[in-house]
Design a binder for these strands. Structure first.
Lengths: 249, 249
DNA sequence: CGGCTGCTTGAACTTGTTCAACAGCGGTGG
DNA sequence: CCACCGCTGTTGAACAAGTTCAAGCAGCCG
């Protein structure tokens, strides 16, 4: 298995060959799969491993007592879930597979020792979790301020950029395995309205979406509609790139 | 200055006297103040210190190019901002003072060495940042799924609980220095609608709010309206505490 | 006093929801 | 092989939640 996690962390820090080997080792631990539309872990469970998505799409979601559901983030190949495992007693949200998902279960202790010995990795992991928080803030902005059309445009831009960093795009296309219901649960609108909004975007030539493939003919145009500014994804040039040392564990 | 940060981190781990001294030391560094309604740091700036709110309320917010503004979180006494400073090159959001704010500027290196020598503190700080992310997820749920009335109720419950942990409540009362405009920018609605929603909650006896003092006569009732489940604040029994573990709602 | 900010109210309006029906498609079982 | 089911996407029409615009009022502060 080619090392997605290393690919991703290298956006943040430069990793030595030793670092990369260590990562590969950890990721080779138990590999598991989940069927599409099944939960991987539920709110209230005690997580026992950090999970690394290797293939497929998953969602982080929360439910209200009356059944309303909000998808709070998407987990793509290379993404970690349950870093919480180190610290929190129980899950305050659930994680479900959207498509069939392959993931690796990384034992705590392995990660902890790895972080102790390889500060670059420790730093990169922490950075990764700060980026996750930044994405969550941007979703807050979308749901709070953007209109339906802007939300969808913004989400597509975000997903496309995230997929790019793990090499899962092809020219102006990427997979988009979400149903309109999923899109609704992520953007805080009904599936009916998602449908009408998608049609509008299609009519204007901003997106092509069929057979679960999304094409973005004019990226700048879609970014403008969604007021998408990729700064919050922090894809490039972290300050630490030259500065080795430091960090917390 | 009595040590708020220690008070807060002790929710997560037990700190030795040495730890507490170390924290007090770091927090005694340069103390600064910001006038109400002024920015403390702006999007695009390079942060140079971690900041600890000592007194007053601040907000984290993002603006869209056309001027719409979303408050993405509130910063209360004991809260840290810009932990990002360790890792990210520039701010992807701004921080502003809501009331007059007193804050301490903590130099990197001091924090780094403290974390290196005092693992309990390092762990607690990381935990703290995971809780911040959990709160952000819950805001996503509010904005995506809750109605106006539920959002306000939920926000008030959250703020009250957070204030409680730093001893800033008195019986069923706390300060609530937000204008209706602020509330609107935090909950993704217009000030006009905030106004009508507040009136509704008042009429039903769920809240009393005047002179910037919020009173919650029946906490359970307000929690029910907002579908507030405090689990995401992770206020108690982290796994590391020796925790007898638990069950919560 | 005058000007500012924040709160309140009403009325028209817009965005997005709800309900309901139907079409297409793939899978399953008789 | 066909009938049937469940899921996704699509459409229309009535409806509700929240917005916009506009005005007025109260309190505060220089």
């Amino acid at each position: 298995m080619y090392n997605l996690l290393a690919l991703k962390l290298q956006r943040f820090v430069s990793l030595s060959d030793g670092d990369i080997d260590a990562l590969s080792n950890v990721c080779r631990q138990s590999i598991r799969t989940a069927r599409a539309r099944r939960d991987i872990i539920r709110e209230g469970d005690t997580p026992h491993h950090v999970k690394l998505i290797v293939d497929g799409w998953a969602i982080r979601y929360k439910m209200l007592p009356d059944g309303r559901r909000q998808i709070v983030s998407f987990l793509l190949p290379g993404d970690l879930c349950d870093l919480n495992v180190f610290l929190l007693d129980e899950m305050d949200h659930s994680i479900g597979a959207l498509t069939p998902v392959t993931y690796a279960e990384l034992p705590h202790d392995l990660i902890e020792t790895m972080c102790d010995h390889r500060r670059a990795i420790a730093r990169a992991l922490w950075l990764e979790s700060l980026v996750v928080a930044a994405i969550q803030r941007e979703w807050t902005v979308s749901l709070g301020q953007r209109t339906a059309r802007e939300r969808i445009a913004h989400l597509f831009c975000e997903m496309f950029e995230r997929l790019e960093t793990v090499d899962l795009t092809e020219e102006d296309r990427c997979e988009m395995p979400l149903t309109q219901i999923d899109l609704g649960e992520a953007t805080g609108m009904t599936a009916v309205h998602v449908n009408r909004t998608l049609q509008e975007l299609r009519r204007e030539g901003l997106i092509v979406l069929n057979n679960r493939i999304l094409t973005i003919p004019d990226r700048q145009a879609l970014m403008a509609v969604g007021m998408f500014n990729p700064n919050y994804l922090h894809h490039r040039h972290p300050k630490c790139e030259t500065a080795p040392s430091s960090a917390m564990g």
